[in-house]
């Protein structure tokens, strides 16, 4: 839809690695990841639990615990996030980069009214007075199609249904009209009906005023419905990245192919074995032990991410 080559990216990640020190081991959760998010684009980061995709999102906001270390570069509109001061980062979070957290059950404070919680986000970043903030939140709620927005302001989280709580969380993420929203596993553990509702809700948000979105999910069907481009992560690194159509219709990496085949609609053909723990990553190609076209080269050597088709990157010796 857009010519990506001529636009400058909104967020540009280069050679990002994030490590954790856990007791005496160092675990590399994100390994040498480079990606760009352009204005008005939804990029889906797809991978299994423990592949490092959530750590990547938290690295962008520098919200990781003390025992972690990020190296590389994360440029947001030319600003180097990894070198930003605490004040600069606070100004960035919520205002420029919004985050919609994973769990709609535990991400809201159960003791505060939901309206107050959303107003708090607004008042943190803008010098808006209380009555105006109130008006703005009501407006936000009605835009998100929360029924009876004025009344919902005074509700506590437990008085709302799962779908409504999800809307409140989304409204917190978009309250200050950020340019980029990070969405962490928006559909995990939701039933099919609620999942569809969330997908529609996020789709509408992404379509609004030139907003970019980084969608983190394990569910390829959710990615398919929302994303312009898809990056597939396995064991801490990106193994395939390209347009949604490219990645889903002509997947080049055996992992992406297997992942698609394990969808219930495709007859859930399982991938043999288990994904490696980040503290015990195989040498060479990380997917080689489970690969359907495993090669001896992959057992010994680690493939690079190469452009197999225009704008379609694959980390596999078989991609050429």
């Amino acid at each position: 839809m857009l010519n990506k080559q001529v636009m400058s990216p909104l967020l540009s990640i280069r050679a990002l690695s994030t490590c954790f020190q856990i007791q005496e081991t160092v675990v590399k959760a994100v390994d040498n990841v480079s990606l760009d998010i352009y204005p008005d684009e939804v990029l889906a980061l797809v991978g299994e639990t423990g592949c490092g995709k959530s750590v990547l999102a938290l690295s962008i906001l520098r919200l990781l615990p003390e025992n972690s270390l990020s190296e590389g570069s994360i440029l947001y509109k030319g600003f180097e996030i990894l070198e930003g001061s605490n004040e600069e980062l606070r100004a960035l979070r919520g205002r420029e980069i919004g985050m919609i957290p994973q769990s709609q059950a535990s991400s809201l404070n159960p003791l505060l009214k939901v309206g107050w919680q959303v107003m708090e986000v607004l008042r943190l970043h803008t010098k808006v007075r209380k009555p105006d903030a109130h008006k703005k939140v009501v407006e936000l709620f009605s835009r998100l199609q929360l029924p009876e927005p004025e009344k919902r302001m005074d509700y506590y989280p437990h008085q709302l249904s799962g779908g409504m709580r999800q809307r409140v969380l989304v409204s917190m993420g978009v309250a200050c009209n950020p340019n980029l929203i990070l969405v962490d596993e928006p559909t995990k553990g939701l039933d099919a009906v609620l999942r569809m509702e969330v997908v529609k809700l996020l789709g509408r948000q992404a379509a609004e005023n030139n907003r970019s979105m980084l969608l983190i999910t394990h569910d390829l069907s959710v990615a398919a419905l929302l994303a312009d481009r898809i990056a597939v992560m396995y064991a801490g690194e990106i193994v395939e990245m390209g347009s949604s159509a490219g990645v889903l219709k002509i997947p080049r990496h055996p992992y992406t192919q297997s992942l698609l085949d394990s969808l219930p609609g495709r007859g859930f053909k399982p991938i043999p074995g288990f994904s490696p723990s980040l503290s015990r990553i195989p040498p060479g190609c990380r997917f080689q032990p489970r690969c359907r076209v495993a090669c001896s080269k992959g057992a010994a050597l680690h493939p690079d991410l190469r452009e197999a088709d225009p704008n379609h990157y694959v980390r596999c010796f078989h991609a050429d």
């Binding site: 529609k200 789709g203 509408r204 069907s221 398919a224 419905l225 949604s244 159509a245 969808l263």
Partner: peptide, 16 residues
């Protein structure tokens, strides 16, 4: 939703 026959572009009507 079935994959990958329906992609974002084809689903705009569903989203809006």
């Amino acid at each position: 939703f079935e994959l990958p026959t329906r992609l974002k572009r084809d689903n705009l009507r569903l989203v809006h």
